[in-house]
Amino acid sequence: MIGELVPGSVATEWRLDDSEQVTLFPEETALVARSVEKRRQEFATVRLCARLALGRFGVPAGPLTPGPRGEPRWPAGIAGSMTHCEGYRAAAVARSTDVVSLGIDAEPAEPLPDGVLGVVSLPEERRHLASLEAGDPAVSWEKLLFSAKESVFKTWYPLTGRELDFDEAVVEFTPDDGNGRAGTFDARLLVPGPTVDGAPREHFTGRWLARGGLVITAIVLTR
């Protein structure tokens, strides 16, 4: 599914469960040695996805360990992103000559816990979600907003090395014509954006879909 949201320059791989046997590198095993079994399994499966996607660019398998914010540290010359949630694991990678940064996120299509929407959204976003829900209440718009902001952060952080709060970007969704369960979104940064190829980026644009009990978002900043 994630492949539907990114251009052809991006290689993707995804799994719905952890049924495949995965051999981790020692550096990776150490990271989850004290974790519960569920965490170890999803950690391994998402790295399987990443290694398979990297293999399409001829990148040999190697350990994928996290940086200071938990972000995956990719091989030289690669931009990428990983995500895992209940029922879905995925990775997307591209050559850094084609893509500056990218972010993907998947979430179960369930309501946010009580009180969370007020933390992760701005008043104008809540008004926007109310309008979208009136048009198609079957989409989990609150969770889609959360996912989009996760993708914004995953795209932002490798370019800046600093945090981006939920209230530092405002997201607007546009459903595709004739298909209300997929579309595009625009994230307008409310803080100075990163400079990419000599120009500041004040907007990140992405794609989304809602399918199979999931909401999935992706942003790809191309050169």
Rank of each mutant, 00 (worst) to 15 (best):
E125Y: 01
G115I: 09
E133C: 13
S101T: 12
D105F: 00
G87A: 07
R127N: 13
E28L: 06
A91C: 11
T65K: 01
S81F: 06
Q41M: 13
E42N: 07
I78Y: 02
E107H: 00
G62S: 13
A61Y: 09
A109S: 08
I78K: 02
L64W: 00
F57P: 11
A79H: 01
P75F: 01
E110V: 14
P137D: 12
S96D: 15
K143H: 06
E107L: 00
E42H: 09
T45I: 06
E71W: 00
G55W: 01
R127V: 15
G67R: 05
S101P: 11
D105H: 01
R73T: 13
P111S: 04
M82V: 15
G77K: 03
E125W: 00
G115P: 07
R39Y: 03
C49L: 05
S140D: 13
L102N: 05
G115V: 09
R126S: 08
A106D: 02
S19D: 15
D98S: 11
A94E: 11
A76W: 05
L52G: 08
V22S: 00
L102Q: 05
V46N: 06
V120A: 01
R126P: 04
R56W: 03
R126E: 12
E27M: 10
R126K: 06
I78F: 06
S147D: 10
Q21E: 15
A94H: 04
A106S: 09
E107K: 00
W74Y: 07
L31V: 13
R69A: 14
A50N: 10
V152A: 07
E71P: 06
A148Y: 01
K154H: 04
S19A: 15
P137E: 11
I104S: 04
V59A: 04
E125L: 04
E150D: 09
E125P: 10
A138F: 08
K38L: 14
P123F: 01
G103L: 05
P75K: 02
R51E: 09
S121C: 08
S101C: 10
A109Q: 01
M82R: 02
C85Q: 06
E133Q: 15
A50C: 07
E150Q: 04
P26M: 05
G70Q: 05
D18M: 09
Y88F: 13
V99F: 01
G115E: 05
P60M: 05
D114T: 14
L132K: 03
V46R: 04
A91E: 11
F57R: 05
R126H: 01
G103V: 09
A109Y: 00
V100Y: 07
A76P: 12
D18I: 05
A33P: 08
R56N: 10
L144E: 08
D17N: 13
V32P: 10
L117F: 02
A92L: 08
P26T: 11
F57G: 11
S96I: 10
L129N: 04
R73V: 14
A53E: 08
V139I: 15
G62V: 12
A30E: 15
S147E: 09
T45K: 02
M82W: 00
F25P: 11
L24H: 04
A61H: 11
S81P: 10
D114A: 14
L52W: 09
P108L: 02
